[in-house]
Computed example of a mutant assay.
Amino acid sequence: MTRTYQTGEDVTRAFFDAWNVQDLDWLADLFVEDADFVNVVGFWWTTRRQIRKAHDYGFRKIFQDARVEIVTLKSRPIGEDVEVVHTVSTLDGQNDEHGVTAGQRVAVITIVAHRQSEGGFRIVSCHNTDRVDGADTHLNSDAGFRPASYQTD
C-alpha cells in the first residue's frame, strides 16, 4: 500500500517511523525510484532498491535492537514542490561487531523531498552525518582516521 505524504516533514517523520519498526517495504516506498542516500561512512546508494538492500543488511547485522528519535526538525520549502528537511536525531541500541550494545550516537540527517505527480511527497535525497561533539573536522594520519579539534580553549 502506497501512502501519501502532504509535506516533506511528513515523509521525513515517516522515514524515522519506518526505520524504528524496521519495515523495509514502507521505508523503500518513501523514496523515489532513482533516489540518492549517503550514509554516515560515505556509502552512496543511488536507487530505491539499493537503499532497501542496505537497510535490510543494517537491520539484520547492526541495528536489530536500535531506535532513532528526532530531537530537532526544521523544514525549508524551496518553492511549492520541494522541501529540504534537516533533523538532529539520536540512535540508541546499536550493536557493535561482537553483539554488545554500543553507546548513543547523534546524527544530522538531511532529506530533500519532492512532490510527485500523483500528489504526495517522496524522498529524492537523504544524507546521514554523525555529530561528534568537540570535533572541528576529521583527520587521517598514521594513527588512523579520527575526529580532531583545533581549539585550544
Rank of each mutant, 00 (worst) to 15 (best):
N39M: 01
N39G: 05
V40L: 11
V40H: 07
V40N: 10
V41C: 03
V41W: 09
V41S: 08
V41E: 06
F43M: 09
F43L: 08
W44E: 03
W45T: 04
W45Y: 13
W45S: 06
T46F: 03
T46L: 01
T47W: 07
T47N: 09
T47M: 06
R48Y: 02
R48D: 02
Q50Y: 01
I51F: 05
I51D: 08
K53M: 15
K53A: 15
K53F: 10
K53G: 13
A54C: 00
H55Q: 07
H55T: 03
H55A: 02
H55P: 06
D56G: 12
Y57P: 02
Y57K: 13
Y57H: 14
G58M: 02
F59S: 11
R60G: 07
R60P: 01
R60V: 09
K61Y: 01
F63Y: 04
F63Q: 02
F63I: 00
Q64F: 02
Q64N: 01
D65A: 13
A66E: 06
A66G: 15
R67V: 10
R67D: 05
R67W: 09
R67E: 11
V68C: 12
E69W: 04
E69C: 02
I70H: 13
I70K: 08
I70S: 04
V71F: 09
V71Y: 10
T72W: 10
L73G: 11
L73H: 12
K74Y: 11
K74R: 15
K74A: 15
S75D: 09
R76Y: 15
R76Q: 15
R76T: 15
P77K: 07
I78S: 14
I78R: 14
I78N: 13
I78E: 10
I78A: 12
G79L: 07
G79S: 02
E80D: 13
E80S: 12
E80P: 10
E80R: 14
E80W: 07
D81L: 00
D81F: 01
D81A: 13
D81Q: 04
D81T: 01
V82F: 01
V82E: 06
E83F: 00
V84Q: 14
V84I: 14
